[in-house]
């Protein structure tokens, strides 16, 4: 599988903000159906990288290719789930999930059908007509995921989607995410700062250095699929977590000093 052409490739991407280099020359290939995690210290440019891939942010240099074609703007094959809470408080669960379809002029009937199916997939039956104010944090994140998934993007970018959740919810939602990926067959690029989460979910984990963000190492997770959260108990799991932490430790200390300045 790894020998086929990558569905997503980024080549030598750099991003400078005035006075700050956020990302420095990052290249990465992601293959179809792969689950790749990006992990790195806070402020190393993970969100920046994801928004550049999604076409929401201009890059200073480099290129993004989807199925071999260079893209400059937003692209129908890409869906994104943001780090911050991003569902619209003035729309119900169903209306939130329908948003993208509505923008593309999909008929009401079809919108409803697709969204209802998505609500089943993310397990929000019974909450279709609730407004975000009445949902828990985990439910809101599921709405955000469903809103991205309903557009049937081949590539899903997720920026710490479970960042604001407690550990248990995070593990369970991770398990569900794998189930959904299995069911729909997405390619996922997943940002996290949680090592356990990265190992639990990914085929590969990409470790990024402290700012300016560069790729420090890529670790393959050779735990067979389908996986449940029980992989956490495996000995292999612990070893991988330890290995990644040793790579990250140095960077986190550096990142910590940057912000302490």
């Amino acid at each position: 599988m790894k020998d086929s052409a990558p569905i997503l490739e980024i080549r030598n991407i750099s991003k400078e903000y005035p006075g700050v280099t956020a990302i420095d020359n990052v290249s990465l290939k992601v293959h179809q159906h792969e689950f790749v995690s990006i992990i790195g210290p806070s402020g190393c440019g993970k969100s920046t990288l994801l928004e550049i891939i999604a076409g929401l942010l201009a890059k200073t240099s480099g290129e993004v290719f989807i199925k071999g074609h260079a893209v400059k703007n937003t692209h129908a094959s890409i869906g994104i789930v943001f780090q911050q809470e991003s569902i619209f408080p003035w729309r119900s669960t169903l209306e939130n999930i329908e948003f993208g379809l509505e923008m593309h002029g999909v008929s009401k009937q079809e919108r409803r059908n697709k969204s209802r199916r998505m609500i089943e997939i993310v397990g929000l039956q019974g909450f279709e007509d609730r407004y975000p104010g009445e949902l828990s944090g985990g439910m809101k994140q599921r709405v955000a995921i469903a809103r991205a998934l309903v557009m049937e993007p081949e590539i899903l970018l997720m920026d710490e989607p479970f960042g604001a959740l407690d550990e248990q919810t995070r593990i369970i939602l991770g398990e569900e995410l794998l189930r959904i990926q299995q069911e729909i067959g997405q390619t996922i690029l997943f940002v996290t700062h949680n090592i356990h989460e990265a190992v639990q979910l990914s085929d590969r984990v990409v470790v990024i250095t402290a700012r300016p963000g560069k790729i420090k190492a890529t670790i393959s997770v050779d735990i067979e699929r389908p996986r449940t959260s029980e992989v956490i108990a495996l000995e292999k799991f612990g070893k991988l977590v330890g290995k990644i932490w040793m790579l990250l430790r140095e960077e986190s200390l550096k990142g910590f000093k940057q912000t302490a300045l």
Partner: peptide, 10 residues
């Protein structure tokens, strides 16, 4: 973020 969401779905 709401504007980014709108932009991301075109």
């Amino acid at each position: 973020i709401f504007i980014k969401v709108a932009k991301s779905v075109g």
